[in-house]
Amino acid sequence: MSENGSDLRPLSPFTTVWRWHVTMVTSILHRASGVALVGGVMVLVTWLYAAAQGPESYSILMALMASWPGRALLFGFTLALCFHLLNGVRYLMWDIGHGYEKQTADRTAWFAIVGAALLTLALWAFAYWRLDLLSGQFQGGG
């Protein structure tokens, strides 16, 4: 409603009045995961810089990342990356005119959400099995 109350036409629907549906969730998550991945790029660049600075710097960063807050952060980045990648494929398909049907859009949205969760769990299961991350520290020096 406008300030003078003369215009009673409905306003543009927003999240508070809009029924939640899965394609809306993926749209919001795409932006959220994209913004979160800025942190991921920063960690990646920090990792490269630490490697270039020598084994001491590298060990410090590895110890930091191996701590439980560090692991939680990396797990979050993995989840954000997997979702952004899978959902990004949906948007690329939309760009070339595929997958716009309501049922298809809903199905691919669920696929992106469930797929991202499964892919993240698979990557971390692999990391724990192959990289021996349970030993408490990521391999630093040497």
Binding site: A51, P55, Y58, S59, L81, L85, G88, V89, Y91, L92, L123, F126, A127, R130, L131, D132, F138, Q139, G140, G141, G142
Partner: peptide
């Protein structure tokens, strides 16, 4: 986006392979 679609799996694969061998 298309470049990253190729590069992310490629990078992750190499990263995980090299990571087991430590700093060197």
């Amino acid at each position: 986006a298309i470049a990253l679609l190729i590069l992310v799996p490629l990078f992750l694969f190499q990263f995980l392979a090299s990571f087991t061998t430590g700093y060197s």
